[in-house]
Amino acid sequence: MAYKFVDNYREKGARKKLVTQLRDDRKIEDKRVLEAIGRVPRHFFFDETFWNQAYKDIAFPIGEGQTISQPYTVAYQTQLLHVNEGDKVLEIGTGSGYQTCILLELGAKVYTIERQEKLFLRAKLFLSKMGYTAEFFCGDGSKGIPAHAPYDKILVTAGAPFVPDIMLKQLKIGGTMVIPVGDEKTQKMITVIRVSETDYERIELDTFRFVPLVGDQAW
């Protein structure tokens, strides 16, 4: 990936330490996910004043009441998706665009939607400057993007009160959705696999805390 920003030795070293932490301390096992995180300069998504925060395993405000997700959360969700080269992936909640970059580094064709217009415009312009290509949409992500369905994978990066049926119907048979579901304070990470036209397998995993998913099919 040909970046158009300064990615100096200090930041590369900090990123390498973060990847080691995710692997050794946080037990992220997917080598491809770790390599993708190692390639994306997370500090590019921060004001230069806060570059010292970029490679800490924390979420960080990006404006409009949203955050760039904690690296562990990004790694955890992405690992659950099992993204293959060429997968068509729907991302609900573009936010900063950092998670979008990780998916693109894994070879996915990404359709990403953000309800906050300022974040949508910022991410679309910024990722283009970084040399990434994705399909960006501004709107109610709780309804997915039916016009471009079906998808191999769907990733929801905000906490939902339930799994929206309209999203489930946009999954291919054999496809996987990863979505945090719960109340507005904490959620359980849920993996949903579409087994047939009418049947889904649901697996409940660890507890997280996300900003709420807002829309017609959410809060």
Rank of each mutant, 00 (worst) to 15 (best):
K4R: 14
K4C: 12
E11R: 14
K12G: 09
R15G: 10
R32L: 10
L34W: 09
L34I: 11
L34V: 14
E35R: 11
E35F: 06
A36M: 06
G38S: 08
P41C: 06
H43A: 02
F44S: 02
F46M: 03
E48K: 12
T49Q: 05
W51F: 12
Q53G: 01
Q53D: 09
Q53N: 12
K56A: 08
D57E: 04
P61Y: 01
G63L: 03
T67L: 10
Q70E: 09
Y72Q: 05
Y72I: 08
Y72F: 15
T73M: 09
Q79K: 06
H82I: 07
H82Q: 15
H82E: 15
N84W: 11
G86V: 02
D87C: 00
L90Y: 00
S96P: 04
G97H: 02
Y98C: 07
T100P: 07
T100H: 08
L103N: 09
L104V: 09
E105A: 06
G107Y: 10
V110I: 13
V110M: 05
F120E: 08
L121K: 15
K124V: 09
L125F: 15
L125T: 14
L127N: 13
K129H: 11
M130S: 04
G131M: 06
E135Y: 12
E135P: 08
D140E: 03
D140T: 02
P146E: 06
A147P: 04
H148F: 15
P150G: 03
Y151F: 15
T157D: 07
A158C: 11
A158M: 03
G159F: 08
G159Y: 08
A160K: 09
P164W: 08
D165F: 11
L171V: 11
L171R: 13
L171P: 07
I173H: 04
V181R: 00
D183G: 05
E184D: 13
E184F: 09
K185L: 13
T186Y: 11
Q187P: 00
M189V: 09
I190S: 05
I190T: 14
I190P: 01
V192Y: 04
I193C: 07
V195T: 13
S196V: 02
D199R: 14
Y200D: 03
Y200M: 07
E201F: 12
L205S: 08
R209C: 10
F210S: 06
F210Q: 06
F210K: 02
V211P: 08
P212D: 00
P212T: 03
G215R: 02
D216S: 15
D216V: 12
Q217I: 04
Q217W: 10
A218Q: 07
W219R: 11
